[in-house]
């Protein structure tokens, strides 16, 4: 996983609430067994019309937002299906961080596991960032994960992130290895459960 330290880039505003993962990654891109080739699928039906032509009305098709690294989104971004394809596609499109008043649970977890920084902020702060993003001249922002700040021109907004999550994102470390390092504790738990609730181990 790519570590996230300090990233500077263009932010694009997607104010519509409840943008679901069917919209972020439509079903026709889900029929594969690898993670590659998903950039084309990200927001596909918003980016392209039925003839495959680029839709100029969609923000990510317009300069400078076609270079966007950050998305400033409405409420409940990423709701719906658990498909991690949505996160892989956004990353392959160049997106490094999502900022929204609320981000749906499974999608949030998927971001975290892939090093896509997901930040929730009070609606007022999101509105401020959205106003900056909406003007091409002020759309450039910097996210400093270590300092936990988002800077856009004179605007500087802090964000919260649990220490363990921050450390993982900064280092880009392997989540599974971290848990495997606790294998002895898992074995202990299993032994205890098999003794105190043995029926959980008695399927069929």
């Amino acid at each position: 996983m790519t570590p996230f330290t300090t990233v500077t880039g263009v932010a694009a505003a997607l104010p519509t609430p409840n943008i679901d993962t069917d919209v972020i990654m439509p079903k026709q891109f889900l029929k594969r067994i690898d993670r590659a080739g998903l950039a084309i699928g990200a927001f596909h039906d918003l980016r392209f019309d039925t003839d495959g032509q680029t839709r100029p009305d969609f923000v990510l098709n317009r300069a400078p937002y076609n270079q966007a690294k950050f998305l400033i989104c409405g409420d409940n971004f990423g709701c719906g299906s658990s498909r991690e394809y949505a996160v892989w596609g956004l990353q392959q499109l160049g997106i490094r961080a999502i900022i929204a008043p609320s981000i749906s649970g499974i999608f949030f977890g998927n971001c975290e596991k892939n090093g896509l920084l997901a930040i929730t902020l009070p609606p007022g702060d999101v509105d401020l960032l959205m106003a900056h993003a909406d003007t091409p001249r002020t759309a450039l922002m910097t996210i400093d994960l270590d300092a936990q700040t988002i800077t856009a021109g004179p605007l500087r907004i802090g964000f919260d992130i649990p220490a363990a999550r921050k450390a993982l994102l900064l280092s880009g470390a392997d989540h599974i290895q971290q848990t495997l390092d606790r294998a002895a504790t898992i074995t202990e738990f299993e032994a205890k459960q098999a003794a105190t609730r043995h029926w959980l181990w008695a399927r069929g």
């Binding site: 658990s82 498909r83 991690e84 996160v87 649970g105 499974i106 999608f107 977890g109 998927n110 596991k113 892939n114 989540h175 599974i176 848990t179 495997l180 294998a183 898992i186 299993e190």
Partner: peptide, 20 residues
């Protein structure tokens, strides 16, 4: 509860999840 693909891999390997 539902999980993503990275978490599926985590469950397969560890039988656990980092859970909020």
């Amino acid at each position: 509860f539902g999980i993503g693909t990275s978490e599926i891999e985590h469950v397969l390997a560890t039988q656990t999840l980092v859970y909020k």
